Amino acid sequence: MLFKSKKSTIAISIARGVLDSIFDECDRCDADETGGRLLGTYRQNKNHLDIEVKGVLEPGPNAQRTPTFFMQDGDYQEKLFREIEAAHPDVEHLGNWHTHHVNGLQTLSGGDKATYNRVVNHDKHNTDFFYALLVVKKNRSHPRYTVKHFIFRRGDENFYEVPHSDVQLVDVPLLRPANHAAPVRERSNAPQTAANPERVKDQDFFSDFYPGMKVLLAKEMNAPYWKGSLPLVDGSRADIVAVEDPDDATRSYSIVSSCKNPMLAETLAKYRARKFPSARHAVINLERDLNQSLYQGRGGKG
């Protein structure tokens, strides 16, 4: 197994064209998370690991994206990988890359860590490591984006950031299947949404406690919003929408509901002017106050 010693060292080389492809994809998806798979080879010498990133698999035409969520088109990527593998039998799936520059989170989210730990410890994963490249910031000058590098290890619950001094760009040809042209996606004409780290925290929170809440993008406002329904104490449900305010420098959230119960009208009216620091704060507060109104209303009738 790799990394038996705490003195293990890692060096990463990345083909310049790989970063160019990653940055181009980030330019095209300037409001949503995106990503892809990293291909190449590696060499192990005792406790030293050399990772050579020589290719990237684009997300694919059926990839799913939101400002806080990204899922790759696995079938498309598997087909491309097998075509590359036929010409380069030594190629390995080294890991994944994805973006956080649209939400401002400077490291991997809790969901990222859990997913990558599962992958590296899966019995069908070919290597004892998993490499995660994370895009954390869009720059106004060279380089176009700031990236970070992380390594996960089989049998190790921790993960490790690789310092930039141990990562180098190299000029080598990209690994690609023969006669393959990457699909072209139209770049959004909407301005990029400002980074907001609360989006990732909301995603993790709702995934754990409110799985019915889904994040979408309001294109006319170029702002994310959360939509779902809340179960209430009387057995009814309240459909809600929590919206990020793109014109507010603090990126505050408002929340509205289409619930028609007359006992809740006064509570809902008070929320029309309220602002919250995150979508989860808005949802928790509204759920509490709606249930309190229902409880008090029922008690008054008794």
Rank of each mutant, 00 (worst) to 15 (best):
Y42K: 05
R272N: 13
D27W: 00
V167I: 13
R140I: 05
Y295K: 14
V102Y: 10
N261H: 12
E85T: 05
Y160K: 01
D90I: 08
G95K: 03
L174Y: 04
T127W: 04
S257M: 05
E85Q: 15
P224D: 11
I240F: 06
S252K: 00
R37G: 11
N121S: 06
T34Y: 02
Q106K: 12
V120M: 10
R298Q: 15
P224A: 12
E186Y: 02
V241N: 12
H125I: 01
G300K: 10
V120C: 13
G302I: 06
K275V: 14
F23H: 14
P143C: 11
Q106P: 10
L49H: 08
R16G: 11
G60F: 01
S229T: 03
D75G: 07
F129Q: 06
E33L: 04
P173G: 00
R199L: 15
L19W: 05
D128V: 02
K214W: 00
K138A: 08
G300W: 09
E78R: 15
R176M: 14
D73G: 06
K113I: 15
T107D: 11
D90M: 10
I284K: 12
E92M: 13
V120A: 06
L134N: 06
A190D: 04
E157S: 01
I284F: 06
P246K: 09
T66P: 05
R43V: 02
F159I: 02
D245S: 14
A273C: 00
Y145G: 03
R298E: 12
P59I: 05
L290V: 06
E33Y: 06
P246I: 03
P177F: 08
H88D: 10
G55F: 05
P67L: 00
W97Y: 15
A249G: 01
H100T: 01
E78W: 14
R154M: 03
G299N: 15
V136Q: 04
A114N: 01
P177S: 13
R118V: 07
A279K: 06
Y116E: 13
R237N: 13
I14V: 15
T250I: 00
G74Q: 14
V283L: 14
D245R: 02
V136I: 14
L268R: 08
V119L: 07
D208L: 08
G110P: 09
E52F: 14
V233M: 10
E83G: 05
P197D: 02
N103K: 01
T267P: 04
F150N: 00
V184C: 03
Y116V: 03
D90V: 09
K124N: 09
S229K: 13
L133H: 04
K54H: 08
L2M: 10
G299V: 09
G111S: 07
G228R: 07
C29Y: 12
Q292P: 01
V120R: 06
G36A: 06
K138M: 05
P224G: 11
L264F: 03
K4F: 07
L38R: 06
N117I: 01
A249I: 09
R185Y: 08
G302C: 04
